Computed example of a mutant assay.
Amino acid sequence: MRVLFIAHEASRTGASIALLQEISFICKNYHTEIAPEVYFIRGGELLGEYRRLCPIYKGWIDNPRMTRVLHIMRLTEWYLYRQLVRRHYDCIYANSVVSFGKAVQIKKKMGEIRLIGHVHEAECMMKQYFVPSIPLDYFDTLITVSRLAAQNLIDNYAVRPCKIMIQHPVSSWVDLLLKGNVSLNIHDYKEDARLIGCFCKEEWAKATDVVPLFLHRFFEKYPKQNCKLVIIGKMPEKIVFLLDFVLRKMKLKDKVIMLGGINNPLDYIAQLDILLLLSREESYGLVAQEAAVMEKPIVGFYGATGVEEWIEKGAGIMVPYMDLGRMADAVNMLLSDEVKRLELGSQAKSIVRKIYENDSKMESVISSILNN
């Protein structure tokens, strides 16, 4: 069967990486049953990797500045739509809610065709990017990345539970780490302190602005604790400056190691004692998987992350939403109790191994496409 995957962009972000893994899995294991093609609304740095797997089509950006260019782009987009409709697909698979509108447009032109939506967003991001006028009842199946994302569809969009399937994304690094196929270049931080890891981005949901507030609360309660926060993640220069400014004003700069964007974060995760999830909302969180399989216990907020569903099984500690005092208590307990910290780290690896064994088969994705 011929399947058209529609994606917002081919950037190196969670939804795009997850789709790349799905298509790679299909090409390797279901190449006789499923023939994938991908239409990207925008481009991105992963286009080359997608192109090696299957045919791709690329649209245009939505807001060009010149009217003449806009006219040409609209004509090209119209021509591309006609070409796609003539391909007579058996199924359309929209990856992330940003691409739902395009998927519904094509379905309306093609008539009776199976339509699948993959929801990578939880409540906050869905409100920001989903267009309410798009009828979700057009979709035969909605796949979500976590129970958190699924519950949002049920509570706020009146989607029937029987229409929802959950497919946890699996980091490509997890497979390599579990098989021992990763060669780590361990970096020496030249620190005697315990290290707490935190991944930051510029988005409001990632809560980078909460970092100084957490550190202030932590060292206010536990001033004798010898530890530092390692901040990993590429952020705009302005955000880095503002974060540095606030840390200096609060006299916390010496409690932080800022690494910025790095090619292989696993080299640095290997040195951590704890991974901290400060996000206000995150539908899943692949970095938590990677840290867990490296036996790092995780501390996060209830109701903020999709990985809560397996962290609370013994991979770390969850605290009430945005309660920095309770988070400080949890971090202090793990830093002070090495036996407990190592125990939770070991359990974290076992839990993620089970997730990998179940979800790396991508049964929800395959069965929804084949309509089994």
Rank of each mutant, 00 (worst) to 15 (best):
R2G: 01
S11L: 10
S11T: 14
I17R: 12
L19G: 01
L19T: 05
Q21S: 13
E22K: 12
E22C: 10
N29S: 15
N29K: 15
H31E: 14
E33R: 15
E37P: 09
G43F: 04
L47I: 07
L47V: 04
G48E: 09
L53K: 02
T67K: 12
R68L: 11
V69E: 15
V69L: 15
R74E: 13
E77G: 11
N95G: 00
K102C: 06
Q105W: 12
Q105P: 09
Q105E: 14
G117N: 07
V119I: 11
E123A: 11
M125D: 12
K127N: 15
Q128E: 15
Y129V: 08
S133L: 10
P135N: 07
L136M: 11
S146M: 00
A149K: 03
N152A: 04
I154R: 10
M165I: 00
I166Y: 01
V170H: 06
V170K: 01
W173M: 13
W173L: 12
D175Y: 11
L176E: 14
L184W: 03
D188E: 01
D192N: 14
A193Q: 10
K201W: 11
E202D: 08
E203K: 09
D209N: 12
F214N: 03
F218Y: 14
E220S: 11
V230D: 07
I231C: 11
V246T: 14
P265G: 08
L266I: 04
E281A: 00
S283Y: 00
A288T: 06
A288M: 07
Q289T: 00
V293D: 04
V293Y: 04
V293G: 00
K296C: 02
P297W: 02
I298A: 02
Y302Q: 14
A304W: 00
E309P: 04
K313S: 12
G316V: 00
V319W: 05
Y321F: 06
S336H: 09
D337E: 08
E338V: 11
L342G: 10
L342N: 15
E343K: 12
V352S: 07
R353W: 05
K354W: 09
I355N: 14
S360N: 06
S360I: 08
M362I: 05
